[in-house]
């Protein structure tokens, strides 16, 4: 749900990073935070356990610049990936404008990836969203690890609707901004679409 403020000339959009536990959602946000100029970002908030696992969400506000005189502000959220935090995960999806799915490229995590996409589909549905319609990008993370699943095989397993897909190594930043850019573009195109009716 985009929030358009004509008084302040601002567009506010919400992007949620989804995916299985320990897949690199927080690392994506951390990299974006580290590489963004001070004036374009707010404080990054991480509600994590003592062991640094996301407990509720991470949050990072970003200014991407102006479109047609309106400041575009993106609020980036991650969800906790662990299966048993489903209640919290559901809450974060409220009012989402776009989703990035961060998949773990390791063989042993393929089932977790598939299960997480199914869970995303269900949880979106509960908020009245349809994964087939919502702006969505897919990221294959951890491509630097040895013995990862080949790309075409991952694509066959995880591709949902021919969404833009990126290889990434979130720890070093490979593919991180490409993924963000892709979903942000889709959101703005969506906004244009709904404006033209």
């Amino acid at each position: 749900m985009t929030f358009i403020n004509y008084a302040n000339k601002e567009i506010n959009c919400k992007i949620v990073y989804y995916g299985p536990g320990l897949g690199g959602k927080t690392t994506n946000l951390q990299y974006i935070y580290d590489k963004t100029a001070l004036e374009s970002k707010g404080k990054m908030i991480s509600l994590a356990t003592e062991a640094d696992r996301t407990l509720f969400f991470d949050f990072l506000p970003l200014d991407l610049g102006k479109v047609r005189g309106f400041t575009t502000r993106f609020h980036l959220y991650t969800v906790p990936g662990q299966v048993f935090y489903d209640a919290s995960r559901k809450l974060i999806l409220k009012g989402v404008d776009g989703v990035v799915f961060v998949a773990d490229s390791q063989e042993a995590r393929m089932d977790a990836n598939v299960e997480s996409i199914r869970n995303l589909e269900e949880n979106l549905e509960e908020h009245g969203f349809d994964l087939r319609k919502i702006p969505y990008a897919l990221q294959f993370n951890k491509r630097d690890l040895p013995g990862v699943v080949p790309l075409d095989q991952m694509y066959r397993m995880l591709n949902y609707k021919r969404e833009p897909t990126f290889e990434a190594v979130a720890t070093t930043g490979v593919g991180v901004f490409d993924t963000l850019r892709a979903v942000a573009k889709l959101i703005l195109k969506d906004l244009r679409q709904s404006a033209t009716g």
Binding site: I4, L64, G65, A184, K185, A195, T196
Partner: peptide, 20 residues
């Protein structure tokens, strides 16, 4: 009223690319 007056109806691909 089909909200034709929305400034976002006129966003071009170039506008979006310029942002990035």
């Amino acid at each position: 009223a089909a909200s034709s007056a929305s400034p976002f109806a006129e966003i071009t691909d170039e506008d979006i690319d310029a942002l990035f």
